[in-house]
């Protein structure tokens, strides 16, 4: 059995990475079902594919969580909700 104790796993971080992996797998299936990445020019004036939109969503969500931690507090449920709304906005309009 592969010993991964040196990586100091916790169930919380494992869940986090599992969600990221699930998102990537989901995007792969989406790309397989509808190839080409659905490129378009959105409100930012940038030509984005759905992969770009996922990246912008994840990076923006990281900053939303950091801003919440720095300015509001350690309860991140509202930051998560805000991130989901932000990601929906990115996928709809960017």
């Amino acid at each position: 059995m592969l010993d991964l104790t040196w990586m100091a796993w916790t169930w919380q971080t494992a869940t986090f990475f599992a969600v990221i992996l699930a998102l990537l797998l989901g995007m792969t299936v989406w790309e397989w079902a509808s190839p080409g990445g659905n490129p378009r020019v959105g409100v930012l004036g940038l030509r984005t594919t759905r992969g770009d939109r996922l990246f912008i969503s994840l990076l923006g969500s990281a900053y939303i969580h950091l801003a919440w931690l720095g300015l509001v507090g350690s309860d991140l449920r509202w930051a998560l909700a805000l991130s989901i709304v932000y990601a929906i906005g990115v996928f709809r309009f960017v």
Binding site: T5, W6, M7, A8, W9, T10, Q12, T13, F16, F17
Partner: peptide, 18 residues
């Protein structure tokens, strides 16, 4: 990078105890 993320939510005093 995954290991750094794991470290960033834990405290350690050595001996691989987190």
């Amino acid at each position: 990078l995954m290991t750094v993320v794991n470290y960033s939510v834990q405290e350690t005093f050595g001996n691989n105890l987190f």
